[in-house]
Nucleic acid binder design. Structure first.
Lengths: 324, 324
DNA sequence: AAGCGATATGCACAAACGTGCAGAACGGAG
DNA sequence: CTCCGTTCTGCACGTTTGTGCATATCGCTT
């Protein structure tokens, strides 16, 4: 792109956001039309030149976020939504806010682990650009299943992350679950796979949703042809409540003895917990049980979720906004 | 203020800035009118809840800021202005942008040293609020002179800084210059004064303008009744080009042997250089000589200045915006 | 040089927004 | 309970901003 356009965008952004001039005044100074300035500004915004951040003072009394922080030890970001919204609208709004909340956390030299699923797909569609250097986006778990290689679906997500942050993208071209644990063992010794595993071990940020076994609309994992009848009934008898990156856990956060995990390509929970910043995005109350399990397993350091689910999490279902 | 109003402002800000809803839509969700939302948002902005930041990628070619950085070793923030603006308008716009640039640099537990003068007065008028804890604003140099105690003028500046950042304000109730160096020595042993000096020694940020002896409109210091005829001629014979916080220096940045400094209440240049972050705000090309001296003395780590002065600084007076 | 596709610009209109003003709601003081 | 001063609210209006469309500009090919 024309570099002088970029320079103009910067000038315009400074004048608009830092000097409170109107677009009209800026247009006169840049000797162009007001509409061009409008477009310059929007390009400045979505090229990440302008960064809007909302810092809510942590001392805002007994707010939802504070409650969650104290109860579960995670930094919560509650997305305000009204109850009347349907699932899709809620997801979209949670995803948009999640995308913008994640932005400031991504730095140069970051290694960003990304899972897949409907939540992450939505998030990836709303990412705001931010220029970083030498960042890498690495896929957390395979996406293939019996019907497709899952390439297009998961890789779209990865690609969007990569281009938003100017990062190299490292896909993980394996199925979500192997049919036989032995295959996984074999593959895990392949150098091509080890390269990915090593990257994962060095992640500085991980971003994922949660699956919940009993969700109203079951997650991709449970309904998308990844598991057969036998697998599903095994899950039921092991008291599994949900998963993160196709690794399953129980309500108490434990995952030992869940045989399916031996065939899963996602990072072991203990491994995930090594990551400094672990961002979990959740939209929809029906994921509550999976979410509680993930929190019990201490899988997240940051949690972005809609208000209704947040209330449910701390047992305030009925209450309206605090102190009104 | 009503705490629920604050909560609404936060919700509104999230929906507006993070979810791209219109004020109309937000009004419906909050069950209020669109105008109220508009007002909520502006209160969110100027209570510092919403933070707009402009990060210009440092790799934007041979830009003015890059040139200045390489030549003088300071982080430059060039404020775009057209040449046709008069002094007052330029100052206002530089001040506004300076105020908003400073904001993100102020943290909790900061000790902020602030000078006075027309530049800082303008800056103080445009500060955006930001809630911090246990911050202190400390006056860098006395403001009294033969005619007034200077209290109202300098203390207005200090007060504005204090209230913008929720910081304690520590004034320095001494004249700008003592008549006799001996009085300064005596006062500097007073515990009330030492308390201030100790605070200054612990400053984490210092904010100041520059005075330039030959400016078109001489700074307060040179015209405001602080110095008598004898002082002014002494300055002339010592090759002084300007001052920072009423401490004088020559074009090469040296200040040794300038007798007036022995009577000045500002921090010695060597002392100022100890401060981690030293922000210098300059508006108007006629301050160029003072500014060059200050840069030679390495008094600043960050420099906020108007475009015309920036061009002058790197010797590109005639040039228009790079690459157009 | 002409032709062509992609991109950028300005116009004009519609949508979104800020703000003065009048009335409502609130919170003491008497 | 009433009064009065203060703060908040919604309306209405004027201003500011986003965007579809027709036109212009640029870079590249033929």
């Amino acid at each position: 792109m024309d570099p002088s356009r970029h320079a103009d965008a910067l000038r315009a952004a400074q004048m608009y956001y830092l000097q409170d001039l109107t677009m009209d005044a800026i247009a006169r100074e840049l000797r162009t039309s007001r509409s061009t300035v409008s477009r310059l500004l929007s390009s400045a915004r979505d090229s990440g030149l302008v960064q809007v951040q909302i810092r809510n003072p942590l001392d805002t009394g007994p707010e939802l976020e504070g409650l969650i922080r104290r109860r579960y030890g995670v930094d919560a970001h509650v997305v305000p939504v009204v109850e009347t919204l349907n699932e899709a609208e809620t997801l979209d709004r949670v995803a948009m806010q999640a995308a913008r909340t994640i932005g400031p956390l991504v730095d140069s030299n970051a290694i960003i682990g990304v899972a897949w699923g409907s939540t992450l797909s939505a998030v990836s569609r709303h990412l705001t650009r931010k220029i970083t250097h030498d960042s890498v986006v690495v896929q957390l778990n395979g996406a293939g299943n019996m019907h497709t290689t899952g390439i297009t679906y998961a890789s779209d997500i990865m690609r969007r992350f990569g281009s938003a942050y100017g990062a190299r993208v490292e896909q993980f071209p394996v199925p979500a679950f192997f049919d036989h644990a032995a295959t996984k063992t074999a593959m895990w010794n392949e150098r091509s796979v080890q390269r990915i595993l090593e990257l994962q071990a060095k992640m500085s940020i991980a971003i994922f949703g949660v699956g919940s076994v009993d969700a109203d609309y079951p997650s991709h994992v449970y309904a998308g042809g990844y598991l057969d009848e036998g697998d599903l009934s095994t899950l039921a008898t092991s008291d599994v409540v949900g998963d993160v990156a196709t690794v399953f856990f129980r309500a108490d956060g434990s995952s030992d003895g869940i045989v399916l995990n031996e065939r899963s390509t996602g990072p072991a929970l203990a491994e995930l917990r090594q990551v400094r910043r672990r961002i979990c995005v959740v939209s929809g109350v029906s994921k509550i049980n999976g979410l509680k399990g993930a929190l019990a397993a201490r899988l997240a350091t940051d949690l972005i979720l809609d208000e209704a689910t947040a209330r449910r999490l701390v047992g305030l279902e009925g209450l309206a906004v605090a102190s009104r």
